[in-house]
Design a protein around this nucleic acid. Structure first.
Length: 557
DNA sequence: GCCGTTTTCGGCCCGACTGTTTTCAGTCG
């Protein structure tokens, strides 16, 4: 908001720095306030201390409220458009009274935006594209946020309404990377179960409620659909409300055409007299249709039913298969925790190894390591390996692919690393041939192992760069390289379609946390869920190998 | 707004890229 008001940029940066400090504190800000330790933190001075203390002790900050009241809400939507930052948004508002997406779209569509000083024809087109992107994303939520909501709702119902059965359903259960709402199916005391949801403090409005369904909207705008069904229908309802629609349709067609059954959300019925066939689980429903069980993540009608009919559903990768974590950052570059802290945290979680992959020279903003600093880092890794014997720490790097497709480190350095990850961090606006060419060239380097966050997309934030993913996957296959499945909930990159392509080309996948702090390891379930959507098995991945097998696989010539 | 000091001002992470300009501002990572 200070940026929008045109405040001194360094003052704005001080607020960013302060916020970052608070976010990465090992202790809670409340505790620091209570013990008078706040002002001792680097980056938190007199002014920020006063404001934070006020906020923590009273729960309010009039300074913040005052500035907020001065700025129209719509300006924050404008800021989400790529290429529009505080300066341009401020110009639009001050000079042209544009304070909403709708007004901006109108002006751009009339061709008047290009005449605003600092704007032009290209920017006008980019803005219109950005508005389209935002429209597409409206009402969509990240899987990680939806899972948190779903789990809390299930826990609430379990503690207050004693359900006979309850489960998350819908696209959240299928681990779709972004979702529109949360679905929950339960059996038990309908009134108590629905009350448990309807009386949750985060419920903004109950939009529908009858004997079978309770729909609410949460404070974030996210919708929740709770279905309460008879116990005998639970498995059928869970199957039905998990979807996908296309998967259900195929199942229903199969039930009718092959068995003369009727399948719906309430049950499976045989013959003319519609005699119900009892099923207590989804497995039993599939079995009644002469199918193997199909994991929820696979239910997208992309060939899974044929596999199940042929008893060849793959055994998908699961958390238990993951032996180690590849791709993480430390305080050596832009991470928040030391090598030792990352190692101890991973050890506690039961992993056998981690690979430290800090940024390289070109990533100035991320404090990328020169070859010289990298060598110093190796000494610390050696020392921590001695100190923390329960886990093996490997040496790696996330190496920038430069504009010409060459790499940021010399081959002499690269060949000494255990794991070399390459990635694009600049030049995202290049055309398809250019970007694909850069990556294919990088993958031809014999010392490279993994291509990280291949599409560069940020879910609900940034479209992928223009890249021919099939060409890249083919090149990875020809060169024996590995494609990353970045488990960061904002990325989940590769997506499930690309992962299936990797399987087709025999290209292995690395399911990586890309952690910038110890908490970052918590994203692995989302990576694994996405892997399962792409039919990835334990043997399709590399971090399902123990450390010796991993090194042998990566370094075989 | 923060910080350090050659200590109460002056600099603050920084380079690439784009599209606007016609020498550079704004945005991004």
């Amino acid at each position: 908001m200070l940026e929008l008001k045109g405040e001194n940029q360094f003052k704005c940066r001080a607020y960013y720095a302060g916020a970052r400090k608070i976010e990465t504190l090992p202790t809670s800000v409340t505790e620091l306030v209570a013990t008078d330790q706040l002002a001792a933190q680097a980056g938190i001075g007199k002014a920020l201390t006063e404001k934070i203390v006020e906020l923590v002790t009273t729960g309010r900050l009039p300074y913040h409220e005052r500035i907020k009241a001065e700025l129209p809400e719509g300006l924050f939507d404008l800021l989400r458009i790529p290429d529009l930052g505080p300066k341009r948004v401020r110009t639009l508002y001050d000079k042209y009274d544009i304070d909403s997406l709708a007004k901006l779209e109108y002006v751009a569509k009339c061709g008047q935006l290009k005449d605003v000083p600092g704007f032009g024809a290209k920017t006008e087109q980019n803005v219109l594209q950005g508005i389209q992107m935002l429209k597409k994303m409206r009402g969509q939520y990240l899987l990680v946020d939806a899972v948190a909501v779903a789990q809390e709702i299930v826990a609430r119902i379990q503690t207050t309404a004693d359900p006979q059965r309850i489960s998350i359903a819908g696209s959240v259960r299928r681990m779709k990377e972004t979702v529109q709402n949360v679905d929950v199916v339960a059996s038990g005391d309908t009134t108590r179960i629905m009350d448990a949801l309807a009386q949750w403090e985060r419920v903004e409005a109950v939009t529908a409620r009858d004997k079978t369904q309770c729909s609410v909207v949460l404070d974030t705008g996210m919708g929740v659909e709770l279905r309460v069904v008879p116990l005998a229908s639970f498995a059928f309802a869970l199957l039905y409300y998990t979807g996908s629609k296309d998967h259900n349709k195929k199942l229903q067609d199969r039930a009718t055409s092959q068995f003369g059954y009727t399948l719906d959300a309430s049950g499976l019925y045989a013959g003319e007299d519609e005699k119900p066939i009892e099923c207590g689980s989804e497995e039993e429903v599939y079995r009644a249709l002469d199918l193997d069980h199909i994991p929820p993540e696979m239910r997208e009608d992309s060939g899974e039913i044929d596999l199940a009919a042929g008893a060849s559903v793959p055994s998908l990768v699961s958390q238990e298969d993951i032996k180690g974590l590849i791709h993480m950052h430390t305080t050596w570059s832009d991470g928040m925790n030391s090598i030792e802290e990352m190692a101890c945290a991973a050890e506690q979680l039961g992993y056998g190894y981690i690979v430290i992959t800090d940024h390289t020279t070109s990533s100035h903003i991320a404090n990328g390591l020169t070859e010289e600093r990298l060598k110093q880092q190796w000494k610390e890794i050696d020392a921590v390996n001695e100190k923390v014997p329960g886990i093996r720490i490997l040496k790696g790097a996330e190496v920038d692919i430069k504009p010409d497709g060459t790499l940021d480190y010399s081959d002499e350095i690269l060949k000494k690393l255990d794991v070399v990850i390459v990635a694009l961090h600049a030049g995202f606006k290049g055309d398809r041939e250019t970007i694909t060419g850069r990556v294919v060239k990088a993958l031809s380097n014999p010392h490279v192992h993994i291509f990280a966050h291949p599409t560069g997309r940020l879910l609900l934030g940034r479209e992928p760069y223009a890249i021919d993913m099939e060409a890249v996957i083919r090149a990875a296959g020809e060169n024996g390289k590995v494609m990353e499945l970045n488990a960061n909930p904002n990325r989940l990159d590769l997506n499930w379609q690309h992962l299936k392509l990797c399987r087709e080309y025999g290209v292995k996948v690395s399911i990586d946390p890309d952690a910038h702090r110890v908490d970052g390891f918590g994203c692995m379930p989302f990576g694994i869920g996405t892997a399962r959507r792409g039919w990835i098995t334990s043997s399709d991945a590399i971090n399902t190998l123990d450390v010796d097998a991993l090194l042998k696989t990566l370094h075989k010539k």
